[in-house]
Structure formats: structure tokens, C-alpha cells
Amino acid sequence: MKRAPGIVTGLMAACTLAASASAGAPPPPVPGGPIGTLTLGTYTCELPGDASGPRGKELPDYAFRVVNASNYKAGGVRGSYLYTGDRVAMTGGKLKGLKFRRVSTGFLRQIDDAGKEMEMRCVLTSRAF
């Protein structure tokens, strides 16, 4: 079957034009808000304390260290997380399935699947430089 060179050339030009037009366009919105990353460093997780002590009850099994971009380490196992808007979801590794709301820089509060805050909080206790 013989192809018409004009059609092929026209399709190639259309693809090139579409690619160059989209290169300067802003990225489409992401469901949940803009994508971000957490501050590098170690996050200590705890339950709130009571009036008898200065600190909450530390939960070493949930402590993690953000090592780069969207990766963390917990218990020697590397995992990944997704941070969109004010939500952080552990998507791989030891803490897979945990969800947090970022309250402020270095302060996360665990949330359930419906977005309701739970007791556990994780706080940046040392930064990586």
C-alpha cells in the first residue's frame, strides 16, 4: 500500500506543534493540591502526653527519616510518600497506608481515611543538611 507523503508530513507537523505548545503551558492541576516534599530529616512520632510529664508517649515503630525527594526510611526499610496540598500519604515501605495532614513545617498529624485527625503526631526533630 502506498502512503501519501503529504498526510505523513502533516501528521508529523501537527505532533511537533502540539508538543511545543504544551511545553510552555502550566501543568494541569493535581487532585488534592500542588505536589510537594517534606523537609529532609528525622520525624519522631508520639501520642499526646498528660499533665504528669513534659512529653508525649514516643512511638519508635513509626519514626521515619525523609532522605530525599519523596522517599523516607523507617526501620531500615526505604519507602515512598506522596505530598499533595496539606496531605501526606505513605505509599510504600514500612509505613505504607499511613496518612497525615501537614499542620505546619515539620509537624504532621495522623488522619484516618475520611480525613479525621487522630491522636498520633509526627514532629521533625532533626534536619538533614
Rank of each mutant, 00 (worst) to 15 (best):
A4K: 11
P5I: 03
G6I: 06
I7K: 07
T9K: 14
A14L: 14
C15D: 00
C15M: 12
L17D: 00
A19Q: 06
A19C: 12
A21Y: 06
S22N: 09
A23E: 04
G24D: 06
V30G: 04
G32C: 07
G32A: 09
P34E: 15
I35Q: 15
I35P: 07
G36C: 00
T37A: 11
L38H: 05
L38K: 02
T39K: 11
T39R: 02
T39E: 14
L40P: 08
L40C: 03
T42Q: 09
Y43G: 06
T44N: 07
T44R: 10
P48V: 04
P48M: 04
G49L: 03
D50Q: 02
G53N: 08
G56D: 09
G56V: 03
L59Y: 01
D61F: 05
Y62A: 07
F64T: 02
V66S: 08
N68T: 14
A69V: 12
A69E: 14
Y72G: 07
Y72D: 06
A74M: 07
G75P: 09
G76I: 12
V77I: 15
R78G: 02
R78Y: 10
S80Q: 12
Y81E: 10
Y83E: 07
R87E: 11
A89W: 01
M90Y: 03
M90T: 01
L95Q: 07
L95Y: 01
K96G: 02
K96W: 01
K96S: 10
K99A: 11
K99Q: 15
F100W: 13
R101P: 03
V103W: 02
S104A: 15
G106Y: 04
G106H: 09
F107Q: 11
L108M: 09
D112N: 15
D112I: 08
D113S: 11
D113L: 10
G115W: 09
G115V: 12
K116A: 12
K116N: 11
E119F: 05
R121G: 04
R121H: 04
C122T: 02
C122L: 05
C122F: 03
F129S: 11
F129E: 13
